[in-house]
Amino acid sequence: MNNLDSLPKKKILSLFMTCGFPTLNQSKKVFNEMLSHQPDIIEFGLPFSDPMADGPIIQEANKLALRSKLSTQQSLNLIKELSKSKNNTSFVIMCYLNTVRKFGLNKFIKNIKSIVDGIIIVDLPFEEEDAIKKSLSKNNIHLIKLISPMTDKKRSKKLLKNSKGFIYYISATGITGSNKLDYKEINKNVKSIKKMSSVPVLVGFGIKSKKDVIDISKKTNADGVVIGSALIQKYFDIKMDFNKYLKSLKKFIQEVKI
């Protein structure tokens, strides 16, 4: 069974968090808090020293997590432990290719089989995915595809062929000098993706508030949202006081669950 195959039809909520942030022990509490709200999806970021596709906030979270030499094995163990209270929430790993490669693909899959429903390898374009995709699908783990506003129709078609789980549409890209969401553009692109694929389309990058979540739901055809940086930002907002962080996280997740 793969939880991603039974996602709700609308208003899907996916929450991203870096494993081991701010410390491994505190990270458990953070994920438990997230899990207690039963979001549709939790994305586990595996920290990487050079997260070039992530913004400064997630980069900082990676740095904090790696401060205590967090290993890939520790992150995977954490995910395994949390999966006991997984219920209907889908578990998705988000990582960079070097992490998987160095750990060993087969060993990696062995560690996440029947625990993790999907994986996003940020720097693995579909031109390079063949070898990995086969092993993943054999073990019923979906390789989640990213689509950006720069991906043209022809490329999207190739990319979206046989897509599983959900499509991650990267919203805030290509808007020079601003991180404002361009709902018109998002709607246009999501519509076009939906013509090519039947799996849900989630919008991610730059979603910061309840208002953003509602607007995406009202003004676009997207099936849900991914929230990441905004969850981590709260930690820095309350000056890294961990107990206060858990409380503000709780409040924020309650808000964005629409």
């Binding site: 596709a53 991906t151 990267i170």
Partner: peptide, 21 residues
């Protein structure tokens, strides 16, 4: 043609950059 020197090289970037490259 896809930028491989033997097994080295390639294009390991996110989908935001792929179309540009």
């Amino acid at each position: 043609t896809v930028g491989r020197f033997g097994e080295f090289g390639g294009m390991y970037v996110s989908e935001t950059l792929m179309p540009l490259l």
